[in-house]
Design a protein around this nucleic acid. Structure first.
Lengths: 336, 336
DNA sequence: TTGAAAGCGCTAACAG
DNA sequence: CTGTTAGCGCTTTCAA
């Protein structure tokens, strides 16, 4: 089929190992003679259209230079800011000579083949590590990194400081005079550590101000809207779990003719691009998504290099920051 | 390291080939004796925790069972509907025992390694096939499929009927009484076949109605808005190239206090999830994105199976349909 | 159906 | 620095 190092070796009159070494750059070319052969070999290689066979190399070295992107939730992986983390992950890995393989975890056994069959040198787990995967991987000693998941402290991980983000968002509303601030998590949100983290941050800020929480956890946008429109303690401000909730809520309030922010203030989470063009532009908690991907790449690669997994795993945190736009304003009296 | 067929063979008292064949399912087990050994081998394999080494298999068979996702535009690949095509691509491939590898094409040579080094058995090109890639791939006879790109008629491809989509959108506005309908393509849009296709559909519909085109091609949202607000022939309806334009435009018009749809009607393209929650919900052209991915998967796999590339390549078209929501309405007189 | 043996193309350990 | 020599683990003839 394609050109091998043997064919080059034959035509160059040297051994295959020499060709391999030269083409791989494993030669310092200190002597004039070796430099000359190196040049000749390289010339021949390019002339003959040589390309290292990665399959053979992977087999021989026991490394594929592939990293698996392990995820369970289709929708989540591409959603909003996550596309930036995945993208930066791909780029960071690529610059180190690695590439990313989609590895959705489902009920089938395709993921097992990949993870256990030596198809990948390491894995980046997105948002949540299924127990069955954790178990399977453990025996294989496959380097793993958790992105946005703190469920397994024994694994290196990169997370956003969700507590701080929710705390800042809640503080912001309190500072604007809001006394009844709601936390809204949509019913379609899958179990995830960020839910309780954000909830804690929200509660902490309220507690500091001596205010009572008002939580709409895992409910539909209809229920949340209902609580805002005619609940017993109608909130004047809402902290949304993500930009999905803000989108849904803004729309529902618009239908009810309730104006944002003059009647109700809304804070989102994640700073998805389109929300800055909402009417009004959304105040939201943003963070450097690309950094998460870059750090993730760094950690897996690190895990691959240092085969000794004795030391404590790195736990990196990305700090979020509040981006104030038009959807939040001074609290209005809605008691009348 | 891990268990090999040799270790199983030794303990089972058969040859390694027999083990390999049994574990692969390459045996009919017609005789009682062979069925018995098969059972014994399988029992041993599971007991010893055997896993086929995919690296070795790939090397030996000359196939990695990997498909490359070739793309040049980071933003585009994850954007809006495209996430659905990528997702369905991953799933479709996975169900056939293949997996997808991110393969961004940039100025580096990482893509060359993957594409030319035999790391992938085929490639799915997203949105546009760079000439350098086309050239490199040609000599390797790597099966390729184009998704959303009709630039190379010699390659199998899946495209959306953009002409029909734009035609339907324009017809819709004309039917509502609009006489001045603008086509808006944002300046950040990269060259792509869909631009001219949509433009042609737009023009065709206008021509049929005896109306003159009014095109804002590759301009900023500011310029487009300007043309709408105080242009010489202020349009009452706008066909947006994608949902990016609609998002930007809706926001700009909102800032100018121009109401949608009573003063200006807007039609988007692609039916991104969040646009149905815009204020008002966006009328847009949608299509079955998942189908594109599924068809793409089918075509690459087909290309891999049938090594003879003599026959004419398949050119599949996905039909879009107009989804009428709240952003379009009867034309208002704006001449005053 | 089974076994023996020869690869697949590259890497790596060891002499020279 | 270079050549020799074994592998890496599986697939695939070819006989038996």
């Amino acid at each position: 089929m394609s050109v091998t190092i043997y064919e080059i070796a034959e035509r160059a009159g040297v051994s295959s190992s020499t060709v391999a070494r030269i083409l791989r750059g494993d030669v310092r070319e200190s002597h004039a003679r070796s430099a000359a052969t190196a040049r000749r070999v390289r010339a021949l290689a390019s002339e003959m259209g040589y390309r290292a066979n990665l399959r053979a190399r992977a087999f021989s070295r026991g490394r594929t230079h592939s990293i698996g992107l392990l995820y369970t939730d289709d929708a989540w992986i591409f959603e909003g800011v996550n596309q930036h983390v995945v993208n930066s992950l791909v780029r960071s890995l690529q610059s180190e000579g690695y590439h990313l393989v989609f590895c959705p975890i489902d009920d089938g056994n395709a993921w097992e083949e990949i993870v256990l069959g030596g198809q990948i040198d390491g894995g980046v787990v997105f948002q949540s590590l299924p127990p069955k995967v954790a178990l399977a991987v453990q025996e294989r000693r496959l380097p793993l990194v958790l992105l946005g998941d703190n469920s397994d402290p024994s694994l290196p991980q990169v997370v956003v400081d969700d507590f701080a983000g929710a705390y800042a968002a809640t503080k912001h509303l309190i500072g604007l005079g809001h006394r009844r601030v709601m936390l809204f998590v949509h019913e379609t949100v899958k179990p995830h550590c960020s839910i309780t983290e954000r909830q804690s941050g929200y509660r902490a800020a309220l507690a500091e101000a001596g205010l009572a929480p008002c939580e709409a956890m895992l409910v539909s946008e209809g229920e949340a809207t209902d609580a805002i429109v005619r609940g017993p303690e109608r909130p004047t401000g809402v902290i949304c779990y993500s930009d999905l909730e803000s989108t849904l809520l803004m729309h529902a309030l618009w239908q009810f003719g309730i104006s944002v922010p003059s009647e109700v203030s809304i804070v989102g989470f994640n700073d998805v691009f389109s929300t800055r063009f909402m009417t009004p532009p959304l105040t939201t908690v943003g963070f450097d998504a690309a950094k998460i991907g870059a750090l993730g790449a760094q950690l897996v690669l690190q895990g691959i290099e240092t085969s000794d997994r004795a030391q404590a795993p790195e736990l990196l945190t990305v700090k979020p920051k509040l981006i104030v736009r038009g959807s939040t304003g001074p609290a209005a009296s809605r008691d009348g």
